[in-house]
Design a protein around this nucleic acid. Structure first.
Lengths: 88, 88
DNA sequence: GAGATATTTAGGCAAATATCTAAATACTCA
DNA sequence: TGAGTATTTAGATATTTGCCTAAATATCTC
């Protein structure tokens, strides 16, 4: 849960997730959408992977990244639990 | 949205929200639950307020904090939007 | 194998963050 | 008004984070 919130805190990482929502992308394709060097994006992708928000698969010289939405279920549960009214 | 994710990233701040779920608490009551000095908690509360996750109300010499869950609706919307499958 | 492309690793730096102590502010009550 | 309590503000410090460049690794193609 800690790694999840940590991963989601950064706006670039959130943007990556939004990009991956439409389909898998290579590290290079992701990087080209940002005004940032490739190693920086690689680092962001690593943090997203650590949070299990993305998975990666090597295909030849490319590395394809996919979004993994299952961890978000826990997040929604946590948030909705906060929203429960206390019994009055 | 940025301040929201920023506020939620810190585990102490998340714990504060969980405490407030059961009812309003004073700054001092919140601080006493942590192994941390009061000014640090005050700072965390300030960040939570900036994210509109809590509101505060002064009553005499005490400041009562309340959780404000309405901002979490936007967060849930954002998360669920990520979970939508792309049209295949 | 050599050169080209894709990606990650390593190391460094500056800005942001989390914490602390000390001091300031605000309120209560005698 | 003055002492005591509650909270915040200010300023300092250590850690974390996000970015960079350079180098390493892996793969493709000739």
């Amino acid at each position: 849960m800690d790694k999840l919130f940590k991963a989601l805190k950064d706006p670039s990482r959130r943007q990556i997730l939004e990009m991956l929502k439409s389909g898998d992308l290579t590290a290079g394709e992701i990087a080209s959408a940002f005004d940032m060097q490739k190693p920086s994006i690689s680092h962001h992708l690593d943090l997203l992977r650590q949070a299990d928000l993305v998975s990666s698969q090597k295909k030849g010289q490319y590395v394809y990244y996919s979004i993994n939405t299952s961890v978000l279920d826990d997040l929604i549960t946590w948030i909705m639990d906060l929203q429960q009214q206390p019994e009055s």
